[in-house]
Amino acid sequence: MFETIAYSILNGVLYGTLLFMMSSGLTLIFGMMGVLNFAHASFYMLGAYFAYTLGLATGFWVALFLAPILVGAAGALVERYGLRRVHQYGHVPELLFTFGLAYVIEELVALFWGTVPVPYKAPASLDFTAFSLMGLDYSMFKVFILLVAIVMFVGLWLLLKKTRAGLVIQGALSRPDMVGALGHNVPMVFTFVFAFGCALAGLGGVVGGIQFVTDPGMAFMMGPIVFVVVVLGGLGSVPGALVASLIIGILQTFFLSINFSLAGAIGSLGIEDSGFFGVLWHMETTRIAAVLPYLLLVLTLIFRPRGLFGKREA
C-alpha cells in the first residue's frame, strides 16, 4: 500500500504540474476578463505543434522559448480582432466564439500537420533514465517538466505580487472598473493577459506534447480537464489552480493504481454484476478514474461554486 501511495504522489505530481501549466493561464484570463476560454486547450496544442516544427530547425531549447511567444502572439491576435469585437454582446457570445475557435484551430492543425500524430520527441539531452524507483524508471524529461512547472509558478507569483504590471492585473482581477478609472488602458491589459495566458498554455504544450501525444485530438482531450481544474481551484485563483491540479493529478493516479471495488472490498454479497447498482457495486476504481474529474466538477459547482480558493462566485 505504501508503495502505491508513494507512487501515486510522485506520478500525480508529475501529471498535476502539467495540468497547472495549462490551467494557470485559463484562470488568469477568466479572473480578469470573465471569459471562460473554450479554446484554451487549443493554444496548448498550438504550443506543441509550434515547438515540434521550430524544433526541427532550431532544436528543442530555442523552441522551448520561441513557441510560447508565438502562441502568445496568436492569442493576442485572437483577442484583439475576435474577442474584443464579441465582448460588446456579452459573456455568452464570448464563450461561443471560443467554442467555435476551438473547432477551427483543430481543423487548421489537422490541415497543416495531418491527422496522424507527429513524431515530437524529447531532446537527446533529456532522454535518459534519471532514476529508478520501485522497479520503474523515470526519464530525465519528467524531472525537467517538474522544474519547468516550478519555475513557472515562482515566476508567475513574483510577477503578480512584486511587479507593477502584476499589481494592475491583480487589481483588474477583482475590480476591473477601478483599474479603468485609474487611467489604465483596460483593453490593452486584457489583450496582454489573454496573450500571456495563451503563452502559458503554449509552454504547457511544448512539454506536454512530448510527454503525451501530439495530434489534432490533444486539445479536445485536455479541454474539459482544464475547466475542472479552474473551477475546483476557484475561478481566477492561481494558487487555487496549483492545488486543484495537484489534487486531480494525485487522485486520478491513485484511482488508477489501486485495484478496488466495493464488491472486492466488502464481498459481492450476492449482488450480480448487472443492473444500475450491481454495476456500481462491482465498478473498479480504474474505470471510475476517467469520470472522476467530471464528478468533481459537478459536485464543486453544486456545493461550492466558488471553488477552493475563489473569492467570488462564477
Binding site: 502505491t4 507512487y7 501515486s8 506520478n11 501529471y15 520501485m134 520503474l136 510527454q211 503525451f212 501525444v213 482531450m221 485536455m222 493516479t253 488508477l256 493504481s257 485495484n259 480504474t286
Partner: peptide, 9 residues
C-alpha cells in the same frame, strides 16, 4: 494520456 499508472500495476 498517461499510461504510467497502469504500467506501475
Amino acid at each position: 494520456r498517461d499510461f504510467s499508472p497502469y504500467v506501475s500495476r
